[in-house]
Design a protein around this nucleic acid. Structure first.
Length: 295
DNA sequence: CCGTACCCTAGTTT
DNA sequence: AAAACTAGGGTAC
């Protein structure tokens, strides 16, 4: 594999690789030590397979060190949004004690751009599920149905194609602990494999129309649709209303609770400054989930 | 728009 | 100690 470095000074606003990858927004990466996002231990290599290419990245003092089968700089920049100007984005959020604390505590956390189908499946799996178990499901899916890629004596697994997941039986998927999500994953994979629908078709639509369009996939409601928009399709204004954010709204922004998803979503999006509201959501989610919040 | 069923696992309570 | 109970990043019907 080739290797190289992306200097830290090129990343405006910095980078916190641990927070970026293990904050529950992406399930595409695997830790060197095999842990599945359940520890608070930082450091080490993260590996993924995208378009048949293996890429590995870790945070070092000088920046991001990488190893890959082809030069991964453009790909890493895309996947980890290394071209986002974090200083400008954070500055665009209205003053707020809780958000401010989250920004200061986890400075360098970036949103991601996961491959759309993979993102869609991982968030269908996320329903009523905790982060480490969602990650374990994605690892199981890759190892069971994903193509193996051998590099330097190591074997890596790509994420399965829509066609392969469509061919899997519901029973096989249940064996991977997907539970009631198994038929959702299969049905959605069938829709994509058949060319009936693709998550990328949401691109180009206005935000709310895009969210609506994603809900045609089986197992995808408004919350999961918002996750795909934010973590894959670049709709940075999306604010997925999960239980953590809902309880934060109840406690800190009660005036934004409008009783239903659509209106509450509009209100909190406005409260978080609109264009980059999804950044505030992701920092806040990570901040609450790690138990670091005091504000 | 509202209520309920749905898998599964780890952690807590009887 | 074994068995209930509970909750965890929702969605379909």
């Amino acid at each position: 594999m080739e290797h190289g470095l992306i200097p830290g000074e090129e990343l405006v606003g910095g980078i916190d690789l641990f927070s970026t990858i293990e904050s529950g927004q992406t399930y595409c990466w695997r830790r060197e030590d095999g842990r599945t996002y359940e520890s608070t231990e930082r450091g080490g290599w993260y590996t993924t397979v995208v378009d048949g290419e293996v890429l590995r990245v870790r945070q070092v003092e000088a920046g991001l060190e990488w190893e890959a089968t082809t030069d991964p700089v453009d790909r890493l920049t895309y996947l980890l949004r290394l071209d986002d100007d974090l200083d400008a984005i954070l500055a665009a959020t209205p003053e707020d004690p809780l958000i401010g604390e989250a920004y200061r505590t986890h400075r360098g956390l970036r949103l991601v751009r996961d491959p759309p189908f993979r993102c869609l499946i991982s968030f269908i799996c996320s329903a009523q599920m905790q982060v480490p178990r969602i990650h374990r499901m994605q690892v199981a899916l890759s190892e069971t149905f994903g193509e193996a890629v051998a590099v330097d004596g190591e074997t890596y697994h790509a994420f399965p194609t829509p066609e392969r997941l469509a061919r899997a039986s519901e029973e096989e998927l249940r064996e991977l602990s997907l539970g009631y999500r198994a038929p959702y994953v299969k049905a959605t994979a069938e829709m994509v494999a058949a060319g009936e629908a693709h998550p990328e078709e949401a691109l180009g639509l206005g935000y709310e129309a895009a969210r609506e369009s994603l809900t045609r996939f089986v197992g995808v409601g408004e919350k999961v649709a918002d996750c795909v928009l934010l973590f894959s399709l670049g709709y940075l204004q999306a604010v997925p209303l999960d239980t953590w954010i809902r309880s934060a709204i109840e406690e800190h922004y009660p005036e934004c609770d409008r009783g239903n998803y659509r209106e509450t979503s509009r209100a909190i999006r406005e409260r978080f400054g609109g264009e980059y509201a999804g950044y505030a959501q992701t920092y806040l989610f990570h901040h609450l989930r790690t138990g670091a919040a005091t504000a």
